[in-house]
Write a protein that binds this DNA or RNA. Sequence first.
DNA 1: ATACATACC
DNA 2: TACTGGTATGTAT
Length: 865
Amino acid sequence: MKMDKSKNISYKSKGEGFLSRMALNDHKAGMEGLDRDKINQIIMDASKGSRFYENELKREQQVNQRIEKMMLQKAQITEPQLKKAQAQVEKMASMLEQSRDLSRLIVHVDMDAFYAAVEMRDCPELKDKPMAVGSMSMLSTSNYDARKYGVRAAMPGFIAKKLCPDLVIVPPNFDKYRAVSNEIREIFADYDPHFQPVSLDEAYLDFTDHVNHRQSWLVSSRTHYYHASSAARGEEKSELPKETLPEVQDLSPVLFEDSPSSSPGLSASGAVVAGGVYEVFGISVEEAVREMRFRIEQKTVLTASAGIAPNMMLAKVCSDKNKPNVRKVQYTLLKLIYKQSLVSGIGKVSEKMLNALGISSCSHLGQRMALLSLLFSETAWHHFMQVSLGLGSTYIPRHEERKSMSTERTFKELSKAEDQFSLCRELCEELAENMKTEDLKGKTVTLKLKKVNFEVKTRSLTLTCTVATVDEIFAVAKDLLKTEIENESPQPLRLRLMGVRISAFVSSDDKKPLQRSIVGFLRQEKTDCSVSIQETHKNPQKEYLSHHTVQTVTLNCHPTMQQCQKEKGVPWQIKKKGLGGDQTSEEPQQSFFQRAYARRLERQAASSSTDEEGNGVNVSVNTCIGSSDQKCVEPSSNTRNSISSYLSEKDFGEAHASTSGCGGTESESLRCPVCFRRVETTNLNILNRHIDKCLSKFSRKPHQSTDPDSESDLDLENECKVVHKWREEEAKDSEELELSGVRPHGQHSLKNDPTQAVSSISADNATVTLEQPQLCNDKGHSLICPVCQLTQETDDLTVFNHHVDLCLNQEVLHELGGNTSSAINPPSVTKSKAIGERVKDSPPSPPSKRAKGIGPCYTIDRFFR
DNA sequence: ATACATACC
DNA sequence: TACTGGTATGTAT
């Protein structure tokens, strides 16, 4: 039977006739038991025939066309092509494997149903009702009760009402959420002052340093009370409505009875003390994270979920695994665990395209990587590759400067030009105000329009001068709008949304000239930056009169609108096309591998530096060095340089090929970007190690060199020649790598089980936890364990800490109905045993005790089949 | 540089 | 009655 029109496309994969983009997302939150088909039916019935729905249909078709195109491409792929791709992909995978860094402790924290939880906390009426925050038009969060009905974020309220007629919809109080957000961020900062907020309720933290310091912490520093001191509490809560105060007091003691899984060790390690109950936390990451969540709960009466992993992507996956069943537990990564292909970065469209290729899990993703590399863009399949290998950022990028700022609003149909202009002006006013608070000026103005049929249009204009004030922005936006109004075919332009955005900021580039020092030196640019800047400042006209003299040096010399007006007599100047002959950008595009590598360099340099402020020695590497007689350059330890492209894209696939950016046509050697000498190898790994040594040499002060194996006595000249020695060491290294669970070069196959590589994480965690800590003696006193209450025959804090930690674990096990006898007899730890035994033996031994103690650790064995 | 699409919360 | 708002980034032209 033929389908009439586009509406009745059938989707084999889903089996129903609904739009995949509208259907319920049930893989994320815990909604195991609910009736998906019924919910989808209600969603469809509520949507059908609407303008929104019609637009969705249209977009769905576009996606389908993309898929068809892709399938055609796929059909044309030949066997040899695929073979070649397979080889490349495997080579790359093995390099990525080698660069795998399991040494970091990255944590992703996420408040549970944040907005909804805040509202429930402050309004007891809502406690046992299905509720959501938002409006009839759109919901931003729902509580777990409502989720049972299929009500979730990003769903319009009126549909949610159909799914759950009793649903209570509370309008959002963003100011309050911001206040709570600040509270939790204060706690985050205690564990990682450089944490990265993702949104009001979410953040990434690097616990590595914290855990290292924590090893020598006194128990008192790891003890936290159920009832925060009333003074502090009073202050913190003073902003909240009065009636919430008793609520806070009432709730606190009961919390853990409500969710016993959130603190398995409570009854054992908690104790009653004058005025309240306290809890002691151990020294491991898991304990530190549990402590953080505990403090969040005590401070805000809200719960958080967390995931711990060696990189950001896996940490996020872990914390998402918490959401089901309202269980506030944290997950430690034991095995690679993502079950859907819907991992951060892979949204509905990508998922659908992957599904069309028969890919529905991460294991498939790995198996079909060769195919994907032929069908998708480089960035896309590189991302897939990372996902399939469980790789992600192992460092948390510092907060980047914003790139754009915008204001947009949805409204009831607006068709009169007059109204549209005045609305446009309002938006510009709002935007200008926000721009002012951050002291921003931008060059690009973008107008966004959504017509009543949901069709979205954007129109932008880039000026040669910056705009910031209402009049300046409106002058541009107005013209863009005017054009659209005039060009609309069935005359009135009927709008449902309008937005204004500013981008291409210039104000923050002021510091750039300083950062360029090394790169600038390497490049030996004839253009002296400071001179250009001076010139341009003196004579702003120069910039837009002759672009080619300005090129990359336009950094901070954009004339303001006022200057433009003075010079030209017009409010703004349209940049002419095709003039900017030299498009050389400061930082050429890097592949993700290059970036990953660069980061590793950065971190290694930073960790070997003595800089206390965390400003590691970030050495700028740039392979595009023209002359061969460069001298070694010592990067200043105070300079933070950005890393420029290190290896060119091509080097990747073919490790033996010449690095085109490096040493020009020399095909048999690579050039070290630090010492500028040629390294007689074509093996990137050897080069990398050379560079590492160079970097550590530069950032290490001579007298600090404590590494007996270091070749600090050799001068660099010699060191460059001993490269061949490293080659010999490679075999040795391969063994080490294998032991640590990372496959040696060349032995990797994507068909292999990636869990193997990641399974070493737990062992690694143990290693980190058990690293020889700094001793912090408390001589002359025997110590009493707050968990088992027994006196420990040691004055060594480290030993004592380990004992407490073990005790906590035992109690946790006990709580879970595990080994009762050992809970009664806590381990008596002696120094030699505690450190010697565990440090040496822990890597191969399974981390079963701790891992189980933390909660139901998520292990999906079936995933990698 | 511009327009549009995708993604995330 | 009724399907967001803010930011970043990728892709195509």
